[in-house]
Simulated scan of single mutants.
Amino acid sequence: MATTETGGAETAFDWFGFLARWGTLISLVLLIAFFSLARPEVFPTLRNTLNILNQVSILGIIALGLTVCLVVGLFDLSIGAMATFGGYFAARFLAELGMDSAWVVLGAVLAVLILAMLIGMINGALVSYLGISAIVETLAMSFVVTGVILGVSGARTVYSSDIPESFQIIGQGAILGIPNPILIMIATALVLWVFLEHTQPGRNMYAIGGNREAARLSGINFQKFALIAMAISAACAALGGLVAAANLASGRPQGVGETYLLNAFVAVFIGASTLRPGKFHVFGTAVGVLLIGVINNGLSVMGVATYWQYIVQGLILILALISASMNSVRRA
């Protein structure tokens, strides 16, 4: 062991620990610098920055809700179907009402989110009270929800001519030049960050995810928090789908939420290697979402083939998982 002149032990810098905590953020900064140098006239502009955030806003809303589920150690594969559910039924309710009023839109949005939360609570009840695998149960629920949407819709899309402009503003409007989807994503992130990091229920969720048996012995009710986590995940997925419907000015009965399912998991797992390796948290998910947005946008403005976006995302996820896994081994 190396020693200093005073005889004390010299502590070697822990490069692995440093990279495990900061590697994702360093990668994000390096990617931003690379794309900015490669396309300085396009990539680092304010317009393109807002474009990146707008592009990932729906993914971000869905991934943030999924984060809450993963914090308590549960997977939710129904988020894709729930996103489609939120978008279609919000558009359908408003088309049936035929009223272009902000209060009517607000009522329809709240009704859809409440329905989504109820479905999420059913997921949580089946998983926590009956001990069914969350992966299998939420996958089954996604089939049920998809079937209900197709049955009610007759596979017909609700078009913009039937959707009030007050609803379309949610996805197409802006405040002070910032698109509404970005503001909704930021608001969702702030609410969930405060909930998980600065409330007792949030701390209880982290305790359950860290060691469910120890949490039970401490008097923390897993069943209750499973219902809450699944309800939040479903509501955020429906909100994301609702924003997508407002942005597209159409309520599609299929092919909407599925496009966000895998990327939502990618973002959350990349985030779990940020600052707190192996732990799911809102800030990490936000970094993961932004990383995906920067990769997709940067490669796109450089004219790189789309398939490279998938390859790069996959490689970064693999590296993130390796980092989290090795960090867990070191702690053991």
Score class of each variant (00 low, 15 high):
Thr3Glu: 12
Gly7Asn: 03
Ala12Gln: 15
Leu19Thr: 14
Arg21Asn: 06
Arg21Thr: 07
Leu30Pro: 09
Leu31Gly: 02
Ser36Gln: 09
Glu41Lys: 05
Phe43Cys: 02
Pro44Thr: 09
Thr45Ile: 08
Leu46Thr: 14
Ile58His: 09
Ile62Asp: 12
Thr67Arg: 00
Val68Ile: 14
Cys69Ser: 15
Phe75Glu: 00
Asp76Tyr: 05
Thr84Glu: 11
Glu96Ile: 14
Glu96Lys: 10
Met99Val: 15
Trp103Phe: 08
Leu106Gly: 15
Ala125Phe: 11
Leu126His: 05
Gly131Arg: 01
Ile132Phe: 13
Ala134Trp: 03
Ile135Trp: 13
Leu139Met: 09
Met141Gly: 07
Val144Arg: 02
Val148Ile: 15
Ser153Gly: 07
Arg156Tyr: 13
Pro164Met: 02
Glu165Met: 04
Glu165Trp: 08
Phe167Trp: 05
Gly171Ser: 08
Gln172Thr: 14
Ile178His: 04
Ile182His: 03
Leu190Thr: 09
Leu190Gln: 01
Leu196Lys: 00
Arg203Val: 08
Asn204Cys: 07
Ile208Leu: 12
Asn211Lys: 01
Glu213Gln: 15
Ala215Arg: 03
Phe222Asn: 02
Phe225Ser: 01
Ile232Glu: 09
Ser233Tyr: 08
Ala234Lys: 01
Gly255Lys: 04
Val256Pro: 12
Glu258Pro: 09
Leu261Asn: 11
Arg276Gly: 06
Pro277Trp: 13
His281Met: 03
Ile292Lys: 05
Asn296Ala: 05
Asn297His: 04
Asn297Met: 02
Asn297Phe: 09
Asn297Gly: 03
Ser300Asn: 15
Gln309Pro: 03
Gly314Asp: 06
Ile316Gly: 01
Leu319Pro: 04
Asn327Glu: 10
Ser328Val: 08
Val329Arg: 09
Ala332His: 07
